[in-house]
Simulated scan of single mutants.
Amino acid sequence: MAKNKLTGSLHTVLLSTTMMGVKRNYARIKDDIKNEANRGNQFVEIHLSQLFQQVFHRHSRDEADRIMIAGTKQTTPALTKVSSAPVKPWLFSRFFMLLSFSFLLLTILYLGFGSDKAIPGMMVVGSLVVPFSILIMFFEMNVYRNISLMQVNTTMLVGGVASLLLTMVLYDVIPSGNGVSLGSALLVGFIEETAKTIIIVIFINRFKLNYILNGILIGAAIGAGFAIFETAGYSNEFGLSTILLRSWQAIGTHTIWAAIIGAAVILGKQRYHHFTLHDALTNAHFLSYYLVAILLHAMWDWQFPVWWVNEFYLLKYLLIVVGWVIIFWLIDAGLREVRTLQGQQIRKRLK
């Protein structure tokens, strides 16, 4: 009985997110289009073996090039040609292997030849491996192909630094404590996620983006930049061993937290309008996901009062799973949004 209630609650959350994405686009959406978006809208099962099956297939350089040149005027497809099928990213794994191999070579240079000149490279490349690979995965998942790699890199670099600067400003204004107790961890989560949210809003408004998958990508770019620069800074302060610890943890931290907020910004704004302070304060869907990101961050930083939970990173493993489940919900909502938008265009042509 409890399991059925939980499944029902999860289905309600997903259905609400999906239909909200539809309703925000059309004030008077027709019932037949609404039914199309809602058809087969059961709880989404996550089949990782299918999602990542292309990772293990051989791909040509031309296939990689076609992905990398997305987002220009010549390569952005019309809405009718955008695919709403579940995407199967693979290029991100090549970036992961490339960066990992580069880090390995730098490590050999440092340990085998005692070259201190390899240390800056190890800090930079080691900080890039996981966040940048996840970012490329979201770039592949943006089926609209309306954001270029240049925009993504600009957002990651400028947005990442800007969010760190704004975080420092907020830390000066809001005393946050040591970040270990639950209250202090909540304040740290609020400060850092709010700083990223402000920068995410600026970039989404600047690029005039309107789709859920766009929001996920832009949020991930800013979160990845934040994570990369923060990890490099910690590595410089606490030593190279910090890179290994923070690299695997980056699977479930700033990049996906910011991606959740990026989707929330899109969900919270009126179509073809900028996201405003009024939207931030009044839209329940934005506020819900924004608070979820803060809570995930706070729980990550909190020192759970049971030593073996912290020692074996059990809470962090749980938070990684929860974060990615939310990401997949939002991706599913984004793909359903494509079908709804295409359905309206078809109805217009048939009139």
Score class of each variant (00 low, 15 high):
L157M: 15
G159W: 03
G160V: 11
V161C: 07
S163Q: 13
L164S: 11
L166P: 10
L166K: 12
L166F: 15
M168R: 12
M168K: 12
V169A: 11
L170M: 15
L170W: 10
D172T: 09
V173K: 11
V173N: 10
I174A: 04
P175Y: 11
S176M: 08
G177P: 05
N178S: 13
G179P: 02
S181C: 01
G183C: 03
G183K: 08
A185E: 04
A185D: 03
A185Y: 02
L186S: 01
L187N: 01
G189W: 01
I191N: 01
E192P: 03
E192Y: 10
T194G: 05
K196D: 11
T197Q: 08
I198L: 09
I200Q: 13
I200N: 15
I202V: 15
I202Q: 04
I202W: 09
I202K: 02
F203N: 11
I204T: 07
I204S: 07
F207P: 05
F207C: 09
F207E: 10
K208A: 15
N210R: 11
I212V: 14
I212Q: 09
I212F: 08
N214I: 13
G215P: 08
I216T: 10
I218K: 11
A220V: 13
A221Q: 15
G223Y: 04
G225A: 13
G225I: 07
G225P: 14
F226Y: 15
F226I: 09
I228T: 03
E230D: 06
E230V: 02
T231H: 00
E237Q: 11
F238G: 04
G239D: 04
G239A: 06
L240E: 05
L240V: 06
S241A: 12
L244M: 11
L245F: 00
L245P: 00
W248P: 00
W248K: 00
Q249D: 04
A250Q: 05
I251M: 08
G252M: 02
T253Y: 13
I261G: 07
A263K: 11
A263T: 12
V265I: 07
V265H: 03
L267C: 13
L267Y: 05
K269A: 06
K269D: 13
R271C: 15
H273E: 12
H274M: 09
H274I: 14
H274R: 12
F275R: 05
L277Q: 08
L277N: 07
L277F: 14
H278C: 12
D279P: 03
D279Q: 03
A280L: 08
L281H: 08
T282G: 01
T282N: 09
N283M: 06
N283F: 00
A284R: 06
A284F: 01
H285E: 14
F286N: 06
F286E: 04
S288L: 01
V292M: 09
I294Y: 02
L295M: 15
L296V: 14
L296C: 06
H297K: 05
H297D: 10
M299N: 04
M299I: 12
W300H: 08
D301W: 00
W302C: 01
Q303T: 05
Q303H: 11
Q303L: 03
P305H: 00
